[in-house]
Amino acid sequence: MTDTLDPRSWLYPTPRGLYCKPGDFYIDPAVAVPRAVITHGHGDHARPGHRKALATPETLAIMRTRFEGMADTSQQPLKYGESVRIGEVDVELAPAGHILGSAQAVLAFKGQRIVVSGDFKRRPDPTCPPFEPIPCDVFITEATFALPVFHHPSDMGEIGKLLRSVATFPERTHLVGVYALGKCQRVIKLLRAAGWDKRIWLHGSLMALCKLYQEQGVDLGDIAHVGDAILETFRGAIVLCPPSALADRWSRRFADPVPAVCSGWMRVRARARQSGAELPLIISDHADWGELCQTLKDVGAPKVWVTHGREEALVHMARSLGIDAEALHLAGREEEGT
């Protein structure tokens, strides 16, 4: 390790995204670039049109499912734990526990190690391997839920709420708003673990990624497209759809539906009401406050850069732990994510 090397001299934000100079590549860039390292498949991290893209095999498969024209991108799969040299930089991908294929990018240059964690969470997820803390000199962390008010309760407890509501309103359809990638499949797995063996109905836009998960070996049980099935079919049923569909004309086909939304934002009542949820379920694929603080301790990095979310509170917390922390503003990150 060189004490004199300034990490900002070889990894820094640019308008196109976070740029690694000695490797001449971007990490999760906001626009198409000649060479990209992609941490995971969500739309604010993975974008189409790069000339070269390095990611886990699962993330590349997700990108092929989501984007047209991926054939024009030269795809370089890198499994968890394997290493590759790009320019003068050694690149490794480590599990981030966020969604299928999600990874932290571990970059080593001249004896200095920076971990770009992407989005991550610390609690178990049946659809992906758990986050692996990697000791490093600089840790770049997300801050989506970086306030002490965000504490995600047990996910099985939240699924229990959903099943109790189904029992209380057996004649109504429970419409559950979930993000198409990751949340959808995790919620299905959690429902299965809670003993819900019945068919789970899906909005059309969720079908392709569920099929991909199944091909990747994630068993989702009996799932089917809502399609043109008659209304009677959905009494007492659980139907998953993207959150936007809850208020969409699409939802009118169900008699007196119970709108539920699965998201870390549901922790705050005003946000839950804005979403139109009658049944807010706090299920998130991001680290909560406790997990973020624990992770800073686990990786033991003397420097922490905080990106997208509530940077102020996490920077404050990190500094109180004696960490040299600062906010890092990246282009193209949307606040909404779960």
Binding site: P148, V149, R269
Partner: peptide, 26 residues
Amino acid sequence: KIGAELFHLSYDYVGDLAETLSLIWE
């Protein structure tokens, strides 16, 4: 419980005192 700085950031975000306290308390 969490210091004035973090409490005020939290209250600012949530907007309701009773709710903020209920959320930050462990």
